[in-house]
């Protein structure tokens, strides 16, 4: 186990931010801490890095109790949302910082830094200053800087949060590939469920300072532990007394005693998907259909149809939570 967090509690003043949080991060994994803002995920990451002290509980990194260790002794790499680039140093000097602190020989530093800059595609930018880089380049520099000291774990706090959508998507894929190359145990914080599902191999859902669920992306998406997780990981709609994913609702024009009768209110075409708004006994719901299915059904507003969850659906009873 690369990181073991046990029963961590942390309050800022009287506000509890983390409540009895315990998580395990396996060596070499890429884990996402996912949750709404204010859910405690950044605080948990900072507790692991030693930038915050937990009120109670322990943090074990690679088998060593690190709870009372200062950040400088934990050997973790930390990447900040706003890059935290050393503005008065060149890209080269930024990446070399941790190695210079460790008093490595000059030649070794030069070799290692250039290696890392190549890895993050910034080898042409070595002599530039952070102010001359774009946001995405700065974040890649910060990543190289964190990797330079060969950390036991790499922690990223909303690493793509400050970037625009296009760059964010590119960097996501790139991070995934980088991780497959470097294999360093990585934990990143995000509030974007799509990002977590796409990049991570384990997702920890955090809300109100508590761990709501831990599992692979497929697990948390398909078998959410409760309503909250289900709502947070993707779109949901109501069907009778349960929550279902809108793409798990099947519509047929014929009457079917096994299904529920509904009236079509509106059909919205959104490119490849079609959103069908329905009314069941005065209750609004909606279904997401593939374009081909919608074309075949040719639904019209006012039309009476039968709806039912698809065989693959895992509806969540509303009364359960």
């Amino acid at each position: 186990m690369a990181i073991e967090v046990r029963d961590v509690n942390k309050s800022f003043g009287v506000t509890p931010v983390l409540r009895d949080v315990s998580i395990d991060v396996t060596s070499g994994s890429l884990t996402a801490l996912l949750g709404p803002s204010g859910g405690g995920k950044s605080t948990l990451l900072r507790v692991i890095a030693g930038l915050e002290q937990p009120d109670t509980g322990t943090v074990v990194i690679s088998g060593v109790d690190a709870t009372r260790l200062s950040p400088q002794r934990r050997n973790v790499g930390f990447v900040f949302q706003h890059y935290a680039a050393f503005k008065h140093m060149t890209v080269f000097k930024n990446v070399a910082f941790g190695l210079e602190i460790r008093k490595r020989p000059k030649e070794e530093i030069r070799r290692r830094v250039m290696e890392l800059l190549e890895l993050v595609h910034l080898d042409q930018m070595a002599e530039r200053y952070p102010s001359q880089l774009s946001g995405g380049q700065r974040q890649r520099m910060a990543l190289a800087r964190a990797l330079a000291v060969e950390p036991q774990v790499l922690l990223l706090d909303e690493p793509f949060g400050a970037l625009d959508a296009q760059v964010r998507k590119e960097l996501r894929t790139w991070l995934r590939r980088l991780h497959d190359e470097v294999h360093v145990t990585t934990v990143f914080v995000t509030h974007d469920q799509e990002e977590a599902i796409e990049v991570a191999d384990t997702i920890v859902v955090l809300a109100d300072g508590q761990v709501k669920q831990v599992g692979s992306p497929a697990e948390v998406y398909d078998n959410p532990a409760d309503q909250f997780v289900m709502r947070f990981l993707g779109p949901v709609t109501r069907l009778g007394d349960s929550l279902v994913r809108p793409h798990d609702i099947e519509i047929s024009p014929a009457a079917d005693p096994a299904g529920t009768t509904a009236t079509v209110v509106r059909v919205v075409r959104l490119g490849f998907e079609v959103r069908v708004e329905l009314l069941i006994d005065g209750q609004e719901t909606w279904a997401q259909l593939a374009r081909s299915t919608a074309d075949r059904l040719d639904l019209q507003p006012g039309q009476a149809v039968t709806v039912r969850p698809s065989p693959a659906a895992r509806p969540l009873a509303l009364s359960a939570s």
């Binding site: 890095a49 030693g50 930038l51 200062s70 950040p71 400088q72 002794r73 934990r74 050997n75 973790v76 790499g77 930390f78 900040f80 706003h82 935290a84 680039a85 050393f86 503005k87 910082f97 941790g98 602190i101 460790r102 910060a142 800087r145 964190a146 330079a148 000291v149």
Partner: peptide, 15 residues
């Protein structure tokens, strides 16, 4: 944040 980054990279408070 820059100071925190330096700390995680192994710098002591004086460094």
């Amino acid at each position: 944040e820059q100071e925190q980054a330096a700390r995680t990279l192994g710098a002591g408070w004086w460094q």
